[in-house]
Design a protein around this nucleic acid. Structure first.
Lengths: 250, 250
DNA sequence: AAGTGGTCTAGACCACTCA
DNA sequence: GAGTGGTCTAGACCACTTA
């Protein structure tokens, strides 16, 4: 094929990917729509199979498309859950503010599975925060609409919660925080550290993540009013499923 | 049915990638170390070139490795900046003529480039928040240690800041927030929405991101004490360069 | 000059989905 | 059964880095 001399000469697979991306972002191709497959791209652009795959891989790694074996490659949908960090200063109280991203704020039910409660040694970084390695550890996975969206691991100083309901799989109404309050250890102050990165294979598996989906990692420590750490919680979130919201005053 | 990507026999490229990943995470291969290249993998495992590339692509897309043309594939380093959410925007920080960024960099030198200040129509979502499309828009790029780490676009309601220093490239000591305070529009409340996703090509280019690096997107709106929106700021952060921190009370 | 990663071709066999 | 994506081979030419 004759090529016109272009100063910014992008490789073929990039040009094809750019074209498909534009069609997705413009709304011409919508959530769940089928993209041109490998065979279609090979025919349309007179390219080899590997090149067509490379073009589609770009979009898959950007999280814009999802491949389905034996079926096709489809535009990916994004319907996040809104997670409120500091809800205390709800913006509805002081302004007619509106959210920039649409999110399903309706009470979609969370289900919890894979609950594991064990007594073990906390990793060094966590032990440094809690003041010692002896800990009760609660691991669980949260799902919404049958889809896993979050992995969470909580660490509690062993001597503080030993023999309490915090060490039981079912913590009853109000959850662990209510049980901590029963012990006179009500959390009063929180600090959260937020990162984003690509998932490890184990996280990809447990969260059922398609390619090109980063995870948000939140490390949150809860302190009592006197300032003693009572919980350290490490959460791994499907980034396509969440929008985090924080409200605060100057 | 739900796809479970757990075949009994992992493909060759996955096994090779898993082995290399283990060597990285165990610390055997450290920041900046060179990984076995395509030729080495072809020889070691008796595989074709494309298969070796596929194995390396896994690690590159996970953000664990960075390819360098004509040189090799290297283990990637991660040295983040700590960005304080609620604490860093306290009135004391900018009331004394210090820029917000000072609190973030902890002495590391930073530069601002690509400053652009224009009057234009805000996108629909932003116009909805600010109460109208007429806006002054400030775009800039922040770098630390010579490396771009953040893109930011701020929107100000045009009628509020018209003719003020907010519309100038250089806003003087204390930055735009101090100038807003001069106008009697001191920000009192903030709301931040945080997402993570893979970058668009433009973001990849402007931030100089290697493959496998997500971006953190923060959409922050600032309100005056009466509750009027005075700024909407959309930030795109290199996720490998940042840790966000939020502190709040129960 | 040798080695490296970037791009591309032209095939092949497989497991899976869907009509 | 036809079509799809997943994996893999065996080549090729290129631009770039390094010594």
């Amino acid at each position: 094929m004759s090529e016109s001399p272009v100063p910014h000469d992008l490789p073929i697979y990039r040009r094809i990917a750019d074209g498909l991306r534009a069609r997705i972002l413009s709304g011409e191709l919508r959530d769940g729509d089928r993209l041109p497959g490998e065979n279609a791209l090979m025919a349309d652009y007179s390219i080899a199979r590997a090149t067509a795959r490379q073009a589609l891989a770009v979009l898959i790694n950007e999280g814009l498309a999802v491949p389905k074996r034996g079926s096709g490659v489809y535009v990916r949908s994004f319907k996040p859950i809104r997670r409120h960090g500091s809800r205390r200063l709800s913006r509805e109280q002081w302004g007619e503010g509106r959210a920039i991203w649409d999110a399903d704020t309706r009470g979609r039910p969370f289900t919890v599975d894979e609950v594991e409660v064990v007594r073990e040694q906390a990793p060094e970084e966590v032990a440094r925060i809690l003041g010692g390695p002896d800990a009760w550890v609660r691991r669980r996975r949260y799902s919404v609409d049958g889809r896993p969206v979050q992995l969470a691991t909580s660490y509690f100083p062993a001597q503080l919660v030993e023999g309490s309901p915090v060490t039981l799989p079912d913590t009853g109404p109000g959850g662990v925080y209510a049980r901590l309050a029963d012990l006179g250890l009500a959390p009063a102050h929180f600090t959260e550290e937020v990162r984003a990165r690509m998932p490890a294979p184990r996280e990809t598996e447990f969260l059922g993540l398609p390619g090109g989906t980063p995870v948000i990692v939140i490390a949150r420590t809860a302190y009592t009013s006197p300032g003693s750490p009572v919980e350290h919680n490490e959460m791994v979130l499907d980034s396509a499923a969440y929008v985090l919201q924080y409200d605060f005053d100057a």
